[in-house]
């Protein structure tokens, strides 16, 4: 810890009245590093070490298992549906909210955030209640031979629910900040509505959009609770990567479980890196609440 204190450059030779003593700073930095190291870096390290414990050959063999491959494929499929769907919603909602004045806007913004305050388990439960065998539409769906819950459509729906607010909550404050002048100018110069959106609005919000999509995608690929409730856990069919990790883990196939987990951990790292780059380089062009963009 004394090394850490030494690493802090002394800004003034005399103790400044608006900062702590060198000793206190060293202790606080040490506590922060210890806390973040123990709770964040250590688990991350453990994932990769456990995954590679059996050697690189065993690692890739675990990833080539047919059930693992189909779990990866399903996760990609679900994200490929859920993310664009929420992107479309985010664009529509933020356009309506930011470019016009109307009654009930505050309520609408609150409702968009609602999925973040709902437990993941409840996010799955609501679709079971609607579409499950004993659900409100269960018998009706069954008579047409349509299965939603315990099948891929249910997984997609639950994923859309838990990732619902990401794009919208990034775009709304951003587009509100930018106002309507650019669009009004484009329209008055004869541009059409879609042309205005494509040429004026979209370039203004592109980094914010990317930021929202990035976080939306990370959550879509990693969601566990909501998807677990609606999945039915059929190996090779309705198992996404996080669910497959649970099955392997409960089967005592630890190395394989950590191998799949390491892929998701890599995804998380790449997400964090791109997110940090976006914040550093385009911080101004992200929502003013950019730092807190993903809170809740």
């Amino acid at each position: 810890m004394s090394d850490l204190a030494a690493a802090v450059p002394a800004r003034m030779s005399r103790q400044s009245p608006t900062t702590e003593s060198r000793f206190t700073r060293g202790v606080l930095i040490g506590v922060a590093i210890f806390f973040l190291g123990l709770f964040l870096l250590f688990p991350l390290l453990v994932v990769f070490v456990e995954a590679l414990r059996g050697g690189i050959g065993a690692y890739f063999a675990a990833l080539k298992e047919p059930d693992t491959v189909s779990a990866i494929r399903l996760t990609l499929l679900v994200a490929a549906i859920a993310v664009p769907a929420n992107l479309l919603f985010g664009l529509a909602a933020s356009w309506a909210i930011a470019k016009y004045e109307f009654r009930g806007k505050a309520l609408l913004i609150t409702l968009i955030d609602l999925p973040f305050s709902v437990s993941p388990v409840i996010s799955g439960l609501i679709y079971v209640i609607l579409f499950g065998a004993q659900g409100y539409f269960g018998a009706w769906l069954q008579s047409y031979g349509i299965q939603i819950v315990f099948a891929v459509p249910g997984i997609v729906l639950a994923t859309i629910f838990v990732t619902f607010p990401f794009v919208a909550r990034e775009l709304i404050p951003l587009m509100q900040e930018q106002g309507t002048q650019d669009e009004e100018a484009a329209i008055s110069l004869g541009a059409g509505g879609f042309q205005t959106f494509w040429r004026v609005t979209l370039p203004n919000v592109k980094w914010g959009l990317m930021y929202g999509v990035l976080l939306c995608n990370a959550r879509a690929m990693g969601e566990f609770g909501a998807v677990s409730v609606v999945s039915g856990h059929i190996r090779g069919q309705t198992n996404t990567m996080p669910l497959h990790i649970e099955i392997l883990y409960n089967d005592y196939q630890w190395a394989a479980a950590f191998a799949v987990a390491s892929l998701l951990a890599l995804l998380a790292l790449v997400t964090l890196i791109i997110k940090t780059i976006l914040e550093w380089r385009f911080g101004e062009e992200l929502a003013s609440a950019g730092r807190q963009g993903d809170i809740r």
Binding site: F224, L267, A268
Partner: peptide, 8 residues
């Protein structure tokens, strides 16, 4: 914790 899947 926002980016790392909860199962992992």
């Amino acid at each position: 914790p926002f980016a790392l899947p909860t199962a992992v």
